[in-house]
Design a protein around this nucleic acid. Structure first.
Length: 962
RNA sequence: GCGAGCGUGGCGGAAUGGCAGACGCGCCAGACUUAGGAUCUGGUGUCUUCGGACGUGUGGGUUCGACUCCCACCGCUCGCACCA
């Protein structure tokens, strides 16, 4: 503690003994944190089960589930930015407890994953050890913030008792398939039953079900599961020895952690069939109370687009190229095709030599020459294709991005047939077509697509407009709506139709002629779910010689084996093969089991582990019933907290926008699977989502561009900044270790107390806005608490100053206006204005110099959600025997909200010229009369013609004159 | 490039289409003080000939009345980035 600020304890001589300062605040805070723990104040009752022992009468109240995005325990500790959301939810939770709701509010820890593992690798200390040390430290820091969590529900995802159920949910996913006819997940065993009974036929081209071998049947069923093994190109990071999720790779293709190179490499990996839910994940967004921007990000990520698949025959080959297009109406204008460079069909359709002259249909030789572009000198299409692929592969991502204007590609020598008119059109490969989207091939319609236009210009390709641009159109591609032109053949004519109608008609024609059909495509891909890491949940899967087998539920949990050497095998060789650390645990991997009554035999365990996201997909459900050893959550408990009429289990979910897509999408997916299988009663996990802003802070760079310790920077008189005598430049950024601008809650609590920190974080701006931290400003709310304390407690004697005298009328009315305002602010998470209203009321009491109990009692209750420790202390000193946590929040007396008289501004031509007092509820005529009675107004109106008078009773009077 | 959001004092921010700048910081003055970077009291948008005039990024519009609604532009932030 320093000798600066009013926080200095009773060291100097003339500071009153009982003044509210940091020492007294800290003492009060510790006292009440101990009280809440001892009295189990925030134990939230379940209606049944193990957690129905305390406060059980409250389970009869309507439930409210408030959730924070739980923290990842990080070695660098907490700064004041981290708890912003936690304080916000705590204030709301405390308010709702006082509003007679049974509030569930808890905080667990998301502790599996790469950061902890890397830290462990670097220090050589096992991640289980460091993780628990860090969690203990964080629990201490968060306890000091006075958060009213139910401590029994604070699960840790790395505890066996938790991840057993993560594995159990994986089994539910593995043992399910998506039934397109009922549009829901169903158990695979039901599919098997229907196949065996012939109710359903296999949808592949294979033999009748009864004729299939057991192995064929197993392969078929495995191909239908929501969790399946597939070969997929993934982000392989040999420097970390693991594959990485897309979000763990930076924009320039390196690992977020450690900055190692990342390569695309096809590997056999576990995938979860999230794409089966794409439509529902989009559609159900409409039922959620989330910000539009987050919904939009999810919609964009899922990337649903409607269109058609069209088959183009390849001239001279027994092959067809299937394309996806959102503009089937422009099919008549498709003058060439483009395949992704790695499209599997490319090598099949390459002719032996360049088709010039005769072999190039009607295209003149000058043109076909141009199509070869920079590869014009190559001897054959095959060589040109090889050269182009090499040049494309050599490009970095940055070069590719810079190239978005300049199209590159090469003619394959092959021609395809436009199904509308039989015209042969050249087939190209180009890297602006991506293998991973649609079918990896496009029909190019330069007249209606800017990219295709650019390519056509580059390679001298024909352009045929099939949508008439508006008169005077001087642009290139026209992507807007307009009547179709040049779009007719013997069996169909789109000419004159608008885009929507044309699409519909051409799809009918495509389907009738067998050349294609309407379809929907998504940008969303199945979720790559395995990692070559040690520090994650093991899969409940073993292998026999044919493939994966799910362990029965009775064999859970599959415990992560203790390993001394848990480090991944790393290298700088892009061709190195991943080696999961668990593969080295030989005794664990080889396991003899009796599965499903089969004879005991040796299996190999799955050695990949689950990604970090798995544990966070369902933690909110475990909060409901954290100690249940028989179920992931008891059905009765689940139904209590997720009544079927609620749009989602969690009533309010608060967290940063950085999880807008991945975590929130993954969790919604898991929840929907559990919903389909009847394990949860709501179709969505999070009914309302609120994104809190970030706390920003000034950071300072020296002339080398290196960040210096912001706490040691001084501001000069001229507004510039210096650090150790050198000039540094200021910028603002997210608070944290890397910018060296972190302020810890421990610092603020030590200097002012936790209540001041809480109040400051709530007062500094709206919860959803990012705002710069300003240590200098904290003293404002500290003074507020100090004044409130002084109004209630004599600073010299410590005795209560509150009187039983009735407040004067003005004070009483102000109290009730404050109650109405604060209550409204609490309901709408407008904590910044709630604080302002309380400060106003307190300033009024300070001015009048009296503290009537009739005002102080409700004042303390209103303050309690924001600054609970000082509120509890004052509440006790006011003579109340127990905690105020469940006292009813004050209700304003409506009669006191309407004043006897109100001051109304009088405008002349919209400008305020005077204010007059009128009786509350006075009619328009009285308002007008009062205005005329005003000297200044009378003067202004005397020499003018009144054209109109607008009176909004209680609001304004406006004279329109000329 | 596309999409979304946001522009209010020196600073953080308030304002169901009806008194712009609540509340806080800072600043100014005063009180108490050996002292104050503690605490308390008062003041504080700009200009002003002291009547008032002007003020919510810029320009226009709707309205008796616009920070608020509409259009265009400028600036900042975020997301996506050849998605066919």
């Amino acid at each position: 503690m320093t000798d600066s600020h009013g926080a200095a304890p009773t060291g100097s001589t003339d500071v009153p003994t009982f003044r509210y300062n940091a020492a007294i605040a800290n003492q009060i805070e510790r006292k009440w944190q101990d009280y809440w723990e001892r009295e189990r104040t925030f134990y939230t009752p379940n209606p049944t089960g193990l957690l129905s022992d305390v406060n059980v009468e409250r389970a009869a109240l309507p439930k409210l589930f408030i959730l924070d995005m739980f923290p990842y325990p990080s070695g660098s500790g907490l700064h004041v930015g981290h708890p912003l959301g936690y304080i916000g939810t705590d204030v709301y939770a405390r308010f709702m407890r006082m509003s007679q709701r049974n509030v569930l509010h808890a905080l667990g820890y998301d502790a599996f994953g790469l950061p902890a593992e890397q830290h462990a690798v670097q220090t050589g200390v096992h991640p289980a050890v460091t993780t628990h040390e860090i969690i203990d430290t964080m629990r201490g820091q968060l306890r000091a913030l006075g958060l009213g969590h139910d401590p029994r529900r604070g699960i840790v995802t790395t505890d066996v008792g938790y991840y057993k159920w993560t594995q159990w949910i994986f089994l539910q996913i593995f043992n399910s398939y998506y039934d397109a006819s009922t549009d829901q997940a169903r158990p695979v065993r039901e599919l098997l039953l229907e196949l065996e009974e012939g109710i359903r036929l296999p949808d592949d081209d294979g033999a009748p079900w009864a004729d299939r071998s057991d192995l064929d049947k197993r392969v078929y069923l495995d191909s239908k599961r929501l969790a399946y093994v597939d070969e997929a190109p993934v982000n392989w990071c040999p420097g970390l020895g693991t594959v990485l999720a897309n979000e763990e790779v930076t924009a320039d293709g390196r690992s977020e952690r450690g900055n190692f190179a990342v390569y695309r490499k096809p590997l056999r990996q576990w995938m979860l069939r999230i794409t089966a839910y794409a439509d529902r994940l989009v559609a159900d967004l409409d039922t959620l109370d989330w910000t539009e921007s987050i919904k939009l990000m999810q919609r964009n990520w899922i990337g649903r687009s409607e269109g058609a698949e069209v088959d183009f025959a390849v001239a001279g080959h027994d092959a067809t190229i299937r394309v996806f297009t959102t503009r089937p109406d422009t099919l008549f204008g498709a003058t060439f095709m483009v395949l992704a460079p790695e499209h599997p069909l490319v090598d099949q359709i390459l002719p032996g030599e360049w088709p010039d002259g005769e072999g190039a249909y009607d295209y003149p030789p000058a043109r076909t020459q141009a199509w070869r572009g920079e590869f014009g000198e190559t001897a054959s299409p095959a060589e040109a294709v090889r050269a182009y692929r090499e040049s494309a592969a050599a490009k970095t991502d940055e070069e590719r991005q810079a190239d978005t204007r300049q199209k590159t590609g090469v003619f394959t020598g092959a021609f395809a047939i436009n199904p509308t008119n039989g015209r042969p059109i050249p087939v190209f490969i180009a890297d602006y077509v991506l293998m991973g989207y649609g079918t990896g091939a496009i029909m190019a319609v330069p007249a209606q697509d800017e990219r295709d236009w650019a390519f056509a210009e580059q390679f001298d390709l024909p352009i045929v407009r099939t949508v008439a641009p508006p008169d005077g159109w001087e642009g290139k591609a026209f992507t807007g709506d307009g009547p179709a032109i040049n779009s007719a053949n013997d069996s169909v004519s789109l000419d004159g139709l608008a885009v929507v109608e044309a699409k519909q008609l051409i799809i009918e024609w495509l389907e009738a002629s067998g050349a294609g059909q309407g379809t929907v495509t998504y940008k969303l891909r199945d979720w790559l779910f395995s990692r070559q890491r040690y520090w994650g949940e093991p899969f409940p899967i073993v292998y026999d010689e044919h493939g994966p087998i799910a362990l029965p539920e009775s064999m859970l949990p599959v415990v992560l084996p203790e390993m001394v050497d848990f480090a991944p095998k790393t290298s700088d060789d892009p061709d190195a093969e991943p080696e999961p650390p668990l593969a080295r645990a030989a005794e664990w991997v080889e396991v003899e089991l009796e599965i499903d009554g089969e004879a005991a035999r040796v299996y190999r365990r799955e050695t990949n582990t689950m990604p970090n996201w798995a544990g966070s997909c369902w933690y909110y459900l475990r909060y409901l019933d954290p100690t249940n050893e028989d179920r992931f959550v008891d059905p009765d408990v689940e139904r209590y907290w997720s009544p079927p009429d609620s749009p989602g289990t969690v009533d309010l979910y608060v967290g940063g926008v950085e999880h807008a897509v991945l975590h929130l999408l993954y969790a919604r997916f898991w929840h929907k699977v559990l919903y389909d299988l009847g394990h949860v009663s709501t179709p969505e996990p999070f009914a309302r989502l609120f994104n809190q802003g970030y706390i920003l802070a000034a950071a300072y760079k020296d002339d080398r561009g290196v960040y210096v310790d912001a706490a040691a920077v001084q501001e000069r008189a001229d507004g510039t900044f210096e650090y150790e005598g050198r000039t540094v430049t200021q910028e603002f950024g997210k608070m944290g270790k890397s910018l060296r601008n972190a302020v810890t809650p421990d610092d603020v609590c030590g200097e002012y107390g936790t209540d001041t920190l809480r109040l400051y974080e709530m007062a500094m701006g709206p919860l959803d806005a990012s705002r710069p931290w300003s240590t200098r400003d904290i003293v404002g709310v500290f003074r507020f608490l100090q004044r409130l304390w002084r109004n209630c407690i004599d600073e010299d004697t410590g005795s209560l100053r509150v009187t039983d005298e009735a407040p004067d009328d003005e004070t009483r009315r102000l109290l009730h206006r404050t109650i109405a305002a604060v209550r409204n602010d609490m309901e709408t998470l407008g904590f910044n204005t709630a604080v302002a209203h309380l400060i106003e009321l307190n300033n009024h009491l300070t001015r009048t110099g009296v503290a009537p109990r009739e005002v102080i009692d409700p004042f303390v209750l209103m303050l309690a959600p924001l600054a609970p420790h000082i509120a509890e202390e004052l509440w006790e000193r006011l003579g109340h025997a127990s905690t105020l946590a469940y006292e009813p929040f004050p209700v304003a007396d409506a009669a006191l909200l309407v004043a006897d008289t109100v001051e109304v501004p009088v405008q002349v031509n919209g400008k305020v010229r005077a204010r007059v007092r009128v009786a509350a509820g006075a009619d328009e005529a009285s308002h007008e009369a009062a205005a005329h009675a005003d000297e200044r107004i009378a003067e202004l109106l005397a020499s003018a013609t009144i054209r109109k008078v607008i009176v909004v009773p209680g609001r304004t009077i406006n004279f329109v004159i000329s």
